Amino acid sequence: MNTLSKLIIASSLPSLALASCAAAQTGESSGTGSGTEGLTITQMGEFEKPWAIEFAPGTDMLFVTEKEGVLKVMDTASGTSATVAGAPEVAFGGQGGFGDIAFLPSEAGANVDGRTIYLSWAEMGEDGDTRGAVVGKATLACPAMDNCALEGLEVIWRQAPKVEGRGHYSHRITFSPDESHMYIASGDRQKMTPAQDKTNTLGSIVRLNLDGTPAEGNPFAAEGGVTAEIWSYGHRNVLGMDWDAQGRLWDIEHGPAGGDELNLVEAGANYGWPTRSYGEHYNGDPITDHSDDDGFNKPAIWWTPVIAPGDMQFYTGDMFADWQGDALIAGLSSQAIVRVEIDGENAVEAARYPIEGRVRSLDIASDGSIWVATDEGKVLRLSM
């Protein structure tokens, strides 16, 4: 929509915060509550099947991928939006379509013209029956907000191999704090066992140079091929990645029936999927739980029943000062923002803030407000 929605919902946080009882598991009970007095939720726009939202650093311009293959830009000051020309053809269907958006913070400035943009999407295989995630790089040509286009878009990375099916692409993108490397989440594509096989990149997080080539110093670089791209493996479906204040990478990923995980991501580490999980298969077949001696990295916190995470970001703004350094997780089936406090390598769910709809993506605006997109198409602003 091109004008600011008039829907404003104001409510008190104590009534929004849900206790985290058996739903969040770390071996002991998690905390509850919030130190702020009130939360205002304002609908700012509406889009068709939004998958990712991302502010261009230094601006109030919000970019939105619509799953069917459209890239939009929204001037959040006025509420107007426009289509960005030159978007790629995507393999839409199931969980596939247009994916993530990423900008280089070092290119922050007053406008977006000439800025580098990274995008991910699902791509068809040559045989027409297989699919895989890809990441592309382009330059934004935006002399005016209603005259934006992608120039020189080229695919710089492909998930390997392409397989049948339309699920678990993951394809979230993040850059190391020094911007020397790009990290891409590569889901298991619902094939499970490839996540334990390093001759492919399914069920992995890959670490690349900004041109998409394998980064020097990767843990399996000596093995060559796509194995040289892998940073960590044994993942299922990673739908959020971000860096904490200490410069450590964390991910949030879907478990099967139960066992959603928040993980501290370490070089060369194996996170156990599908050999170990705190969930079970959808048909009820058991999966062995993690044990202290199983050799796999364990989640910092896990959830049964699931929260169905859609995205994750550490809060660094000023508006919600008590949340500094907390992980904010977009909840799909939980229809909430889940706030997690982290102490060292330990994590505890602090509170949940219900949202009307399945929360797919989130980002932090320059004023510290929290913006979310729901599967139902709404873009919302959370503020004090």
Rank of each mutant, 00 (worst) to 15 (best):
M384W: 00
E154V: 11
A300D: 04
D326L: 05
T304M: 11
G136N: 05
H168C: 08
Y282E: 15
A91G: 08
D146Y: 03
K6C: 03
E107Y: 03
G317Y: 09
D244A: 11
A221S: 10
S333H: 14
C142G: 04
S106R: 14
G279I: 05
N263D: 11
V348L: 14
A133I: 00
W250M: 01
A245K: 15
V226C: 00
S78F: 04
D285K: 15
T193G: 04
W250P: 05
S232F: 06
G99I: 03
H168Y: 10
G97M: 01
V265K: 03
H171F: 01
E123D: 13
D75P: 07
E179A: 10
R381L: 13
G240M: 02
G187C: 07
L39P: 02
V84K: 04
P274Q: 11
A23K: 11
F103Q: 06
P105D: 13
L18T: 10
D363N: 12
A102V: 06
T42W: 00
I9F: 06
S15Y: 05
M241V: 09
S20C: 15
E126L: 13
T288Y: 00
G69Y: 06
S29V: 13
A347F: 07
H181Q: 09
P161I: 05
A77M: 09
A336V: 09
R207G: 05
G368N: 10
P14E: 11
S277F: 01
R166E: 08
Q25M: 13
T3F: 12
Y353N: 02
P194S: 09
A221F: 10
T193I: 13
N147L: 11
T130F: 00
E376W: 08
A77T: 14
G258A: 12
G38R: 13
F47Q: 02
E164F: 05
T275I: 13
N200C: 14
G132M: 05
L332A: 06
P214V: 01
A160Q: 04
G165K: 04
N218R: 05
G247P: 00
C21L: 14
D375Q: 15
T275R: 13
E54V: 08
S5L: 12
A300F: 02
F296A: 11
V206P: 02
P105F: 09
R360N: 10
G368M: 10
A141R: 08
I205K: 03
I173W: 07
K6T: 12
L382I: 13
D113I: 00
A102M: 12
P256K: 03
C142A: 14
L262Q: 01
S180P: 06
I307S: 02
R248D: 11
L153K: 02
S232G: 09
I287Y: 01
T288R: 13
D178E: 11
A144H: 05
I53Q: 07
F175T: 08
G225W: 08
V64D: 04
Y271W: 02
